[in-house]
């Protein structure tokens, strides 16, 4: 019910949102989040296969936790410039609470569990402890494993 895509190509925010709700009369709330590259360009590496597999698992988890009617997750990889959209999450539901919460859940998971690695210039970007704290509020997330 939530479609996931991993791609190098840009995406069109308006087109993604419109496609999600076209012809539907049961959707009362559509929450969209777009992450943009700040300040400097980035290069993103990912783990083809595992990324899609884990994204599908978390999308299923979101649908199990909230009454989601439709959704889209797009995450880009490759070289991105300042201001470029890097990630898109859209969740449609009958009412806003489920849409807001499911979108937030998906983003927290993407920041902390999706196998992507950012490189800025010559430096690999380090994982951010505040992202882990944000993700902790959801309890267990798919992919949770602490090193032994």
């Amino acid at each position: 019910m939530i479609a996931v895509r991993v791609q190098a190509e840009p995406f069109d925010l308006a087109a993604e949102a419109t496609a999600l709700t076209a012809g539907r009369t049961d959707i009362g709330a559509l929450v969209t989040f777009t992450g943009l590259v700040r300040d400097h360009g980035l290069s993103l590496e990912h783990y083809p296969g595992m990324t899609e597999r884990q994204l599908c698992a978390v999308a299923d988890e979101a649908c199990a936790r909230w009454p989601v009617l439709a959704g889209t997750v797009v995450h880009r990889y490759g070289d991105l410039g300042p201001g470029d959209p890097i990630v898109f999450v859209a969740v449609a539901a009958a009412h806003r609470a489920a849409a807001f919460e499911a979108a937030s859940f998906l983003m927290d998971w993407l920041k902390t569990r999706a196998p992507f690695w950012k490189r800025a210039g010559d430096e690999w970007v380090a994982a951010n402890a505040s992202d882990d704290e944000a993700a902790a509020r959801w309890g267990g997330l798919p992919g949770d494993r602490e090193p032994g």
């Binding site: 783990y47 995450h75 990630v87 993407l110 902390t112 992507f116 690695w117 690999w124 994982a127 992202d131």
Partner: peptide, 10 residues
């Protein structure tokens, strides 16, 4: 089997 740093997506 894959080995990688902590992830930094989004």
């Amino acid at each position: 089997i894959a080995i990688f740093p902590p992830v930094t997506g989004g």
